[in-house]
Design a protein around this nucleic acid. Structure first.
Length: 873
RNA sequence: GCGAAAGUGGCGGAAUUGGCAGACGCACCAGACUUAGGAUCUGGCGGGUAAAACCGUGGGGGUUCAAGUCCCCCCUUUCGCACCA
């Protein structure tokens, strides 16, 4: 037969072989059809089963139309776990669905003139086929598709509940605008100043009226509960911690010195109040500039006030002094550029003195007011007090612009009476220190002074404790079509009117025209925007923005537990059984976006009385990326490997198994096709061996194990139990499935090495049966098709998934002869064999009798002999 | 700059606790079977040596009978944070 390209293993290609060849192209579709016909195989039992539940979840995909290797890896991990937990006797919930709203559908509509709905549903159908081809154990009866009204109506329902409680609100504010998406983005969707979808598109700031969710109401709890999430990766917790960015400090009002008064005069001359004048002149308005600080203890060292270029007061200063305008605009531009480049650190600090002063309420002394490019309007109050002696940034700035540096904190002396540390290196930012030059607070420790000073400020009415967050409210309005319509109506008479609950869902119209121009596409749909007001019946305008798609993914996993519910998003009692999710698996790229929104949503639902859990996810696992040739797979790099190609060539079992074998699941995985071929060879060996021994395995099924194992039986049983032990421990612990698969390979290598001996009947059929049966159970998590095929050939009656996971036997796993390495001065000199259970003297004698050891010890004195039980001498 | 993780053959990786470094797989080499081999099987495979000795886990020190693993210093890579007041 001429060479015709890659040879696919087909049964007909080797007609002369006596044993059938492993042919996944034949085996896999056959079992897939079986599983399709029996969805109950993978169906979770209801809470009433009373069984211990296990909810394992992989992050639902966006239906792009194509699975990629990252998906395959993600689902292979989850599927291995789900199958294992089934065998461990749990009632396993393992669902899958589609994060089906989103911009790509609209882009596709524009490009191919296909309605987003058709495009999306076709993609879902294609990907569902791919998933089924992979043999994933999903409960398809619970499939959730977020773009269908039976799902998104509950988004709308939640929105109304949130609106009632003030958690959803509308405000005009500066928002992130991606020109590419032609829509607003949440803060979480802006990465390094660019859109999360368009890595190179700079996000613009636009002033728009938008819907927000008050996630900041939960900021404290979201932060605090991170401590409860012990089974989450430290990395994710840190990222969320940073994102929330809680900072505890104080607000202090500085009073602007009126322009008429010469600040310097006020400084040096006691103020002689002319009562008549004061009474005659109109009282000058007291203008306060609140400042946020975490170091109120250093306030006596504040030598200037620095305002953000966009600070409202700055406008007034510009009105008074036109020359300032250009300079301040310049500062603003510098800051803007730096922020867009996401590199504020590289920004050269610049500032402009306004010529005006403000009074430090603690000292009653005026300090100059500046405008600085490094002060941000959207953090704190947009104004800071500058303490050059005790803050790095302020120090740098003060030195550059010649501002006063006033030391008010000194390090504590190590021992009383010892010299030194009078002049600390500036800036000195240590907090285990003492105050000087700080009025009545002099001599107090920093921590102590912080408390006393804010209390004093509060008493005097010019300050209070305050906590600031980096986390901002979640902007959810999107000026797009393919999303959940926001169920609100604007009535000229009644104002904002929610769509009544019984009129939900607000259906997304099917007929829609797309154009390149911006604005909400729904506003151009005749008959959608115009609607009678539910209150007065007059013509009103419907909200035409849709919700951020992260709303969909914030609670989809609750719907899985009760997917067909038509009168509520889900049943609270059912949720109480299934939640929290025992194990969630996905990429670390969702550490902030999806995972923080989901946590918020759960807490919000808890406050609505819908769920009882505080957190959605008990354990989180973030798998590594799939890379190829050192780079993340991407179309632009041309290094994408298609799962379909892999399956067509090597089968789903080999593809999945390789995804688990090539690296531990938490690490990045370098995809090497030769490795998949290696797994495929391994599966072929397994298949050939199993089929060849199958008649004896089947006959061994009803025989009891021999009372005593012969040496070969003992050896094979030992390997079996060592392998079982490895798998049991890995599933319980660190999930290094790569070593599990390696262990199974070792076991199979041992079996095939003894193949001819086995054929000649050296091992009892019952032993062969025990080994093969357990081999199949172990393979099930990684190569479910192979396992199903062999299981059926063994004519087992229990469904594979419901077969209890075998407990390993420590005694059987133990070696009876130990190969003990012997070291002399830490160097390996020999390996001696001793029977298991030998005592130290015995071992020592054996070791000393070994010629190599005698050579190594020649002419030396034995100082010490170290014996380690079960290890080495 | 701060924080975290990582660095082991030609490659992916193993070595749960300080105890035989390189399991398992890929690639490669040799052989067998073949009209053929990109199929299958057998053997080899860190460097070094005729064989040993010896040297080897990013680099340098240290602790220990014993270090990939623990301690100190440094380098590199990846990730996260970064004028957050």
């Amino acid at each position: 037969m001429p060479n015709q390209g890659p040879s696919k293993p087909t049964a007909s290609s080797t007609p002369t072989d006596r044993t059938p060849r492993y042919n996944p192209a034949e085996i896999e579709p056959r079992w897939q059809a079986q599983w399709d016909a029996h969805p109950e195989l993978y169906a979770a039992e209801p809470p009433s089963s009373g069984k211990q539940k296990y909810y394992v979840l992989e992050m639902l995909p966006y239906p792009s139309g194509q699975l990629h290797m990252g998906h395959v890896r993600n689902y292979s991990i989850g599927d291995a776990l789900a199958r294992h937990m089934w065998m461990r006797g749990y009632n396993v919930l393992h669902p899958m669905g589609w994060d089906a709203f989103g911009l790509p559908a609209e882009n596709a509509a524009l490009k191919h003139n296909t309605p987003p709905r058709d495009w999306t549903l076709a993609n879902i159908a294609a990907m569902r086929i791919q998933m089924k081809r992979l043999g994933l154990s999903y409960d398809w009866q619970r499939e959730v598709t977020t773009c269908l009204p039976d799902y998104y109506r509950w988004n709308q329902w939640f929105f109304l509940k949130m609106y009632e409680r003030g958690v959803a609100y509308r405000k005009k504010s500066k928002v992130n605008w991606c020109p590419e998406c032609a829509t607003v983005l949440a803060n979480e969707q802006v990465i390094d100043g660019c859109c999360w979808r368009h890595e190179r598109t700079l996000v613009e700031q636009r002033e728009l009226e938008q819907w927000f969710f008050k996630i900041t109401d939960y900021a404290d709890e979201l932060l605090r509960d991170l401590d409860k999430l012990e089974d989450w990766p430290e990395k994710v917790r840190t990222m969320q911690h940073n994102w929330i960015g809680r900072s505890e400090g104080s607000l202090v009002d500085f009073v602007v010195v009126p322009k008429e008064k010469d600040a310097r005069a006020q400084l040096f001359e006691p103020i002689s109040l002319n009562l008549t004048e004061t009474l005659l002149e109109p009282e000058p308005e007291v203008v306060k500039i609140p400042v946020f600080t975490t170091r109120i203890d250093t306030i006596y060292g504040a030598t200037s006030l620095q305002l953000a270029p966009e600070h409202p007061m700055v406008q007034e200063f510009i009105l008074e002094n036109g020359e300032l305008e250009k300079k301040i605009r310049h500062l603003f531009e510098q800051q803007k550029v730096a922020r867009e480049k996401a590199d504020m650190a590289a920004l050269e600090k610049k500032g402009v003195a306004t010529g005006r002063f403000a009074t430090n309420p603690f000292t009653n002394e005026p300090i100059p007011i500046w405008v600085a490019n490094y002060v941000l309007m959207d953090y704190g109050t947009g104004a800071i007090m500058s303490v050059p002696a005790h803050d790095e940034r302020d120090h740098e700035f003060a030195k550059k612009f010649g501002l006063e540096v006033k030391i008010v904190v000194l390090p504590r002396r190590a021992k009383e009476g010892e010299p030194g540390d009078a002049e600390p290196m500036l800036p000195y930012t240590g907090e285990d220190s003492l105050l000087i030059n700080s009025g009545e607070f002099t001599g107090q420790g920093c921590q102590e002074a912080q408390q006393n000073m804010v209390a004093y400020a509060q008493k005097q009415g010019f300050g209070k404790p305050s906590t600031t967050f980096r986390l901002k409210d979640w902007g959810v309005s999107r000026q797009r079509y393919w999303g959940t319509p926001i169920p609100m109506i604007y009535c000229p008479q009644d104002g904002l009117v929610p769509v009544p609950e019984d009129q939900l869902p607000v259906l997304l119209p099917d007929k829609i025209e797309f154009s390149e121009e911006g604005g909400s596409p729904l506003s151009r749909v005749p008959g959608f925007a115009s609607v009678p007001c539910p209150k007065c019946g007059q013509t009103a305008r419907r909200e035409t923005d849709t919700m951020d798609t992260f709303v969909d993914s914030s609670w989809y996993f609750y719907r899985y537990a009760d997917p067909k519910n038509t009168h509520a998003p889900f049943d609270t009692e059912t949720i109480a059984y299934w939640f929290p999710i025992d194990q969630y698996i996905g990429g670390v790229e969702h550490a902030i976006l999806h995972l923080i929104y989901s946590r918020f949503w759960t807490k919000m639902m808890r406050d609505l009385g819908l769920v009882k859990n505080d957190e959605p996810v008990q354990r989180l696992f973030t798998q590594g990326m799939v890379i190829k040739n050192g780079a993340k797979m991407s179309k632009s790099k041309g290094n994408v490997v298609s799962p379909d190609d892999m399956i067509a060539q090597y089968g789903a079992d080999a593809t999945r198994m390789y995804a688990l074998f090539a690296a531990p699941p938490d690490r990045d995985l370098d995809w090497q096709e030769d490795g998949v071929a290696g797994i495929s060879r391994f599966l072929s060996r397994v298949y050939r061996f199993a089929i060849q021994t199958m008649p004896r395995v089947v006959s061994g099924r009803n025989q009891s194990l021999p009372p005593d194992y012969n040496p070969l039986e003992r050896q094979l049983m030992r390997k079996l139990h060592q392998t079982l032990r490895r798998l049991t421990q890995e599933f319980d612990g660190r999930w290094h499935f790569n070593t599990c698969i390696a262990a199974i390979m070792e076991m199979v290598n041992d079996l095939t090495a003894e193949e001819s001996t086995l054929q000649s009947g050296a091992v009892a059929d019952s032993v062969l049966y025990a080994i093969t049966r357990n081999l199949v159970l172990m393979l099930q998590a990684f190569a479910p098709y192979m396992a199903a095929e062999l299981w059926s050939q063994m004519a087992e009656e229990t469904p594979l998934l419901r077969t209890p996971w075998p407990a390993y036997d420590e005694a059987l796993a133990a070696e009876n002869t130990l190969q003990v390495p012997v070291q002399v001065n830490g160097k390996l000199r020999a390996v001696v064999s001793v029977p298991a259970g030998s005592d130290g003297d015995n071992l020592r004698a054996t070791a000393l009798a070994e010629p190599k050891i005698q050579t190594a010890l020649a002419g030396k004195e034995i100082v010490k002999v170290v014996l380690l039980p079960g290890k080495l001498v």
